[in-house]
Write a protein that binds this DNA or RNA. Sequence first.
DNA 1: ATTTGAATAGGGAAATCACCCTAATTTTAA
DNA 2: TTAAAATTAGGGTGATTTCCCTATTCAAAT
Lengths: 214, 214
Amino acid sequence: MINIIIADDHKIMVDGLRNILEEDPEISISAVAYNGSEVLSILESSKPDIVLLDIDMPGMNGIDCAREILRSYPEIKIAILTMHQENSLIRKFIEMGVKGYMLKTIPSEELIMAVKLIYNGGEYFNSDVTRELLRPSQPSKVLLSIDPLVEQLTKREREIIRLICEGSSNTQIGERLFISPKTVDSHRTNIMKKLDLHNTAALVRFAFKNELMD
Amino acid sequence: MINIIIADDHKIMVDGLRNILEEDPEISISAVAYNGSEVLSILESSKPDIVLLDIDMPGMNGIDCAREILRSYPEIKIAILTMHQENSLIRKFIEMGVKGYMLKTIPSEELIMAVKLIYNGGEYFNSDVTRELLRPSQPSKVLLSIDPLVEQLTKREREIIRLICEGSSNTQIGERLFISPKTVDSHRTNIMKKLDLHNTAALVRFAFKNELMD
DNA sequence: ATTTGAATAGGGAAATCACCCTAATTTTAA
DNA sequence: TTAAAATTAGGGTGATTTCCCTATTCAAAT
């Protein structure tokens, strides 16, 4: 019996997948998660053969989730099922070591076949995915889901973020912008609150992931 | 019933393929050819659904044969089955429009699945083939920008860096790695000294710029 | 067999950050 | 013109980081 965890934040998608996959007597959906961290907490108690993972999910996305699974549970096979077909994204996942990458346009029989192939130690990459790899890669992170919270940031706040990312302290930023270091601290606090972050590392990371920084 | 022509100059290979494929009741081998021109003459009288084509053949090789089939009989699907996994060769065939490209190391069940997939209008590229396409991707620009200081970092230090970048505090990292927060701090200090950085923001930025993080 | 490097851990101190609060001025938008 | 939002700034506190030490253990290399 092939045990699968489905991770996708769209209930319709999950229901559809469950119908398709459980039609096959060898396949069983052992759990469903609506974001990455939910997957990780499920894994603490229950180990599936395959995690069928979407990329766009609230909270922890598929990228971070996949990385964590690969590190903590290398025996669990990951198959990406997404609508994203961007070259750089595909490369990233395959190089990371996922066993499958499929577009959501995949026919159901093909999906079942892919699951069985992966379960038996193989890999499966959608033909659309392979064709995409032929195209010259354009490293635009644009398709990497940009957090909507970015829009809440003001111009000044973005400016502060950039300077923080360059490694400047509040005092240094204050000197460069001719404002008090205490003001910089206020901005910093406001930024943190808006983005729901709690330290500098998380902020810089957020900036890189959301193209505020390059 | 799926009608297939096998084109390969090795009799053992042809026999093996015939055994594997005809085991499936939906598949029938309608003819066998030992080189490209033989395939073309067969096609004059008999039209299969799929031509399973090797590349190395005496007389007309698989490349010229595939090109000719695609021009004269675009409705016939071509699947390459070969031992060659050179990037350029794979690219050439896929861009040409073949429906499948598989290495001869493919397991028999996978080959059968591929045949059925292609017969039903799909495409199938071996996972080894897809991985090969990743290889000589973009060797230049990214690698050149990596700071030589990265080499001085130990495995543990890189691990710590990744966790820092994920927004974890020393205490959290300590809990994760089952070491004292003070040890994490030591690592952190050593990292800073090695990289000549002086705060977390600069460290996270360094990690992103040097692909320690993505 | 000895040395080196890596990982471990702690003491201590100054600097910085994270976050709470209030509050003034300026800018923008309704 | 008024209200809302952005920018400015400071007081205060506890957490965290940064950096200086020393020191032990363990594995790998000479």
